[in-house]
């Protein structure tokens, strides 16, 4: 797979991924002469970042941390590339003055620890061999404050028996909203939906598959649901009751992204197809 992110610092770097789920304090947390993670509170304490593709949410602590990235680079001990979720000042400055290829906008858990990753800072992309990326939409239909969840049948290809929103794969060059509307029609036969908001993509990694989920929130007037072969059950739940382990990966994150996303204006099925 090859996934597009945002460019931070140009150049290419590849190596085994080191995935850190928590922000990194470079000053005091990373040994500048070796690249060892020495922060006792770090979830990747004891690992070494030299020559690796370091994936992490962002920097924290002292802004002097930028100089630690510079010092690592000077000693040839820098990470091969950085994949950072949020381009904060500490990481941005450190990557620039250290000349470390870097991209941003991707969460660290889209990578698995140890797998080989190739970052292209000029194009703003990351490539991981033997991993397939799939773009999908997930629509949350809301009625009287409750959200429609569908239970996936045993006949679908992935996540059999898990709870999900109204979802489907993007086909060809489709834009996500087109697919979202189509899925609502196909799966729940719901023609009276009004788009409320759309969120930034959520990345869900499942073994050798990466799902790039485009989340949408719709208000619907009716609670009537017609299940097709893809689903065996449905229920309307309060957002606080969206399940975690019984659901497809990152369903809650997708919901949060949709709710906090960009507000739509005047997009609805009734108004001439609405797209």
């Amino acid at each position: 797979m090859r996934v597009e992110a945002m460019k931070l610092v140009g150049g290419r770097g590849q190596g085994p991924a080191v995935v850190c789920p928590a922000p990194i304090s470079f000053l005091g947390g990373v040994e500048a002469s070796t690249g060892d993670i020495v922060d006792p509170h770090s979830p990747i304490r004891g690992q070494n970042v030299s020559g690796r593709v370091l994936a992490f949410p962002g920097g924290k602590g002292s802004t002097v941390g930028s100089y630690v990235l510079y010092a690592l680079a000077r000693r040839g001990r820098a990470p091969a590339a950085l994949v950072v979720e949020k381009a904060d000042t500490i990481v941005t400055v450190g990557a620039v003055i250290g000349g470390i290829p870097a991209i941003y906008g991707l969460p660290p858990d889209m990578l698995l620890d140890g797998e080989w990753a190739e970052v292209d800072g000029d194009k703003g992309t990351i490539r991981v061999r033997d991993v397939d990326a799939h773009e999908v939409v997930t629509c949350f239909l809301r009625n009287r404050g409750e959200i429609l969840l569908l239970k996936r049948s045993a006949r679908v290809g992935t996540f059999k028996g898990s709870w999900a929103g109204v979802s489907g794969y993007l086909e060809g060059n489709e834009v996500p909203l087109e697919r979202a509307m189509q899925e609502i029609r196909e799966e729940v036969d719901e023609r009276d939906a009004r788009l409320v908001s759309s969120g930034r993509p959520v990345y869900a990694r499942d073994r050798s598959d990466l799902f790039i989920v485009h989340p949408f929130l719709f208000d619907v007037k009716s609670r009537k649901v017609h299940l097709d072969w893809e689903h065996v059950d449905y229920r309307w739940v309060h957002p606080s009751e969206i399940p975690v382990s019984a659901a497809v990966p990152k369903l809650i994150d997708a919901y949060a992204s949709a709710v906090n996303g960009r507000l739509a204006r005047g997009v609805g099925m009734k108004r001439g197809g609405g797209i």
Partner: peptide
């Protein structure tokens, strides 16, 4: 900012 050796240390000095 970043003029005190206390805050920037050897790595800052090097830069």
């Amino acid at each position: 900012s970043g003029a005190s050796y206390l805050t920037i240390g050897d790595t800052g000095l090097e830069f």
